[in-house]
Design a binder for these strands. Structure first.
Lengths: 236, 236
DNA sequence: GCACAGTATTGGTTGGGCCAATCCATAGAC
DNA sequence: GTCTATGGATTGGCCCAACCAATACTGTGC
């Protein structure tokens, strides 16, 4: 009966069907889908198969199911969608880490450049705060590298936020896995290059504070390049 | 004791569990998973629930199920993983198109820069071929814009291939949706700026042929910037 | 008008069953 | 001896029916 030309598994077919319905606006962002029972009948598949499709699209960030309530289409914001992309990056092989960093270098540079001409005083204030947190030398005290890692992540998050490009922000976020950050900072502490990393962040901050786009882009690129060099050396 | 921070549904839990097993190397890339029946017992969930998790990770590009054979972990290559990311981009709202292009501009520039110092004569030859295909003016003949779109895509694919960074290639590929390419070329034909677009591609080709990284990066960025300007104007 | 209990609705999960594609070992043809 | 095909055994694909759990809704009593 189905006889469709494409390689069709009922489940995969259902996924495509749902995607199409969402893309066509039949189910608008934020809108609610029919109940699983009804939708299964409508699509001509069992509820079980429909559920597999829904679950898959939920993991992809397209749908959101709330028990007792219903299933809704997400806002389809870049951040939401690229969030799942981050999951994939996390699982990538070590061999691709340097490739990812090369991309991140370009993106962070663009973000800093854009941010320099758009950043607000409030954002600059937060930046300064995170910079201060970062200065807590983990070698003394309880030595919690986690704190520094967190401050580092926050710092870069503010920069990408100031850049005002959600796609750019989401991509940078996705490429900056927490595990990589942690590894890098721990290595810096071990090798005594902690201060240099701090200075790099200060340079980015100062360029942004001076609203100097070209300089901001350059120092941001240099910063990531420093991480690259560090990791490249560590791989031997 | 449920007070765990994470939202725990058996299905979501299973997805996390599988991801962990893959990340930890318990299921190495290319490796085969136990049968659904066995794995369901092992994870303490029903086979149906396990199937939802497997289907979700399959859509995400992490697993690959072959009926009658078994379920395998994919190669986890960037291209494979980012392929699903492309699907998400396709569904993004129009409002984010310009944001995406801004990112693409940076990435294409990097790709061209890298390619300039690594491209082989064979790749240059293919580039010239695609350039020739692109010159088939769609205004005469059957006016198949599709052909030009395809040649355009191939052209950029060769550039990213020559750049030698799989992550970069996959990202650019994902951000360059076919629908967007088609829309752009059709608009160029309508507005008679077809030749200019061809010249931009020629400029990229010549910079690569001369192995001039800086120039290649610059003209590539200018090319995407042209697309941006074109679409920005078209939105009004 | 408001708090609360009961009920209907809806996604979450389970177990079992059957189908279809693939693999594999064995028997047969040449 | 080598190749073929034939028939199980294995494995994912799909469906059905039922029950659980969380949420929304509704009507009652105050």
């Amino acid at each position: 009966m189905a006889g469709n030309g494409t390689r069709t598994s009922a489940s995969g077919e259902t996924i495509q069907h749902l995607k199409k319905m969402i893309a066509s606006g039949e189910f608008p962002p934020g809108g609610r889908l029919p109940t699983e029972r009804d939708l299964a009948v409508q699509l001509g598949v069992s509820r079980n198969t429909l559920r597999e499709a829904i679950r898959a699209l939920t993991l992809a960030g397209l749908l959101e199911a709330r028990q007792g309530d219903g299933t809704y289409v997400t806002s389809l914001s870049p951040a939401m969608l690229l969030d799942t992309f981050a999951m994939l990056v996390e699982l990538s092989a070590d061999a691709t880490v340097l490739d990812m960093l090369e991309v991140r270098r370009a993106l962070e540079s663009v973000a800093a450049t854009q941010a320099a001409s758009r950043i607000t005083d409030e954002q600059l204030g937060r930046l300064a705060g995170h910079l201060e947190e970062m200065r807590h030398d983990p070698q003394r005290g309880d030595g919690s590298v986690d704190e520094v890692v967190h401050a580092d992540a926050q710092f870069h998050a503010v920069v990408t936020e100031a850049a005002g490009n959600p796609v750019l922000a989401a991509l940078i976020e996705a490429l900056s896995t927490r595990t990589l950050r942690a590894r890098t900072w721990r290595g810096r502490v071990d090798q005594g290059v902690f201060d240099r990393a701090i200075r790099e962040h200060e340079a980015i901050f100062e360029a942004l504070r001076d609203r100097d786009p070209a300089r901001a882009g350059a120092v941001a690129a240099a910063h990531v390049a420093g991480v690259e060099a560090f990791l490249r050396a560590a791989q031997h």
